[in-house]
Design a protein around this nucleic acid. Sequence first.
DNA 1: ACTGCCATTGACTGACCAGTCAATCAGTGA
DNA 2: TCACTGATTGACTGGTCAGTCAATGGCAGT
Lengths: 199, 199
Amino acid sequence: MASKAAVDKRRQILDAAVRVFARQGFHATRVSDIADEAGVAYGLVYHYFRSKDEVLNELFIERWSLLLAAIDEADRAGGSHRSRLAAVASFIIDSYRHDPELMKVIIVEVTRAANSFGQTHLEQIRSAYESIAKIVADGQEAGEFRADVAPLFASMSFYGAIEQLLSGWIFDVIPATDTSFDNAKDLLVTTICDGLEPR
Amino acid sequence: MASKAAVDKRRQILDAAVRVFARQGFHATRVSDIADEAGVAYGLVYHYFRSKDEVLNELFIERWSLLLAAIDEADRAGGSHRSRLAAVASFIIDSYRHDPELMKVIIVEVTRAANSFGQTHLEQIRSAYESIAKIVADGQEAGEFRADVAPLFASMSFYGAIEQLLSGWIFDVIPATDTSFDNAKDLLVTTICDGLEPR
DNA sequence: ACTGCCATTGACTGACCAGTCAATCAGTGA
DNA sequence: TCACTGATTGACTGGTCAGTCAATGGCAGT
């Protein structure tokens, strides 16, 4: 089957793109950098992708759909709503732990670049906010969360906090150690659910 | 004095740059766009600024030093540490309310673009995190905040939440109304200090 | 051993734009 | 009036790259 090799090459280009985008940033990478990194001819990138943008699109869509699925699953898994939020935080932080380069690209070049690239994916990004907001709203309904906080606000604060911590690791503002990751998971849930003030 | 007019022209260029950057994004704006918007010849931009980058630098530095000063003042003003955090959130949100275009540029092109531009200003950005972290740490010392949360983590979560809400307004994920702004101030402090769960 | 189809190659082109620079203008002081 | 200085102008250059395309390679079915 010819397409077997083809699928591999396509993947090879995507993986190379992650590395190069993570290293140099999207704007600073030339298509030839991706081709070189993938060990492939320049033109082949255009055989598999319509444009440089489409390569990034593909990476984002692949990854983001996993996130949306994970949020959904966290919600469906039941348990306290606090534990569902914990599952979301865990998933995102583990995604970073597992593939920091990909997550760096997604966050730096898409999620936090809502001006250029994010614009295209705003719908999908918003969809994540809303799924998290639903967990909050349900938690309020169940009496587990206070009712006087707008769910979407809470959701965005929660997600913003997570992303900020990821950025901290990405740019070495805070050390990216395993204990740091685990602390962060606890902290995020503790802060958002219990607050900073002692009970 | 010749420099009077010169200062005006310089300002005129900076103000025009804010508008154009906000509208098109930094990468997509040509220097000629700035010159046109300012009603000034192309070359004059280079008379006042070494490069296109320096225009953005200037905008960031002007604004960020105000933020650092505001955090400092919030801290020095005394009162509960909770109220100091509230003052910080207030300042940032009011900055957006007062000059959304400038804040959009700062956040989208610098703060959240730590890859390209932010890299240069990472020190200053980190400085803000640390000033906020100091407020948290002092609050812990004073027994107002629980001691088992790393101050820098708390600070980054807090700041990340603020920035995420600003992004929401910037990109119309949440409506940018006055009540929305005021709600956000309350929410941020309530969430970070009291948590979502009822007491 | 031929034919057709897709993968693969990389040289080339066309557009774009940051930054340069030589020329002109305008205010000031003598 | 003249000379000096800094402000202002905009045409031009040099370099960079995204995307094109015509040519080649190689496999699969007959």
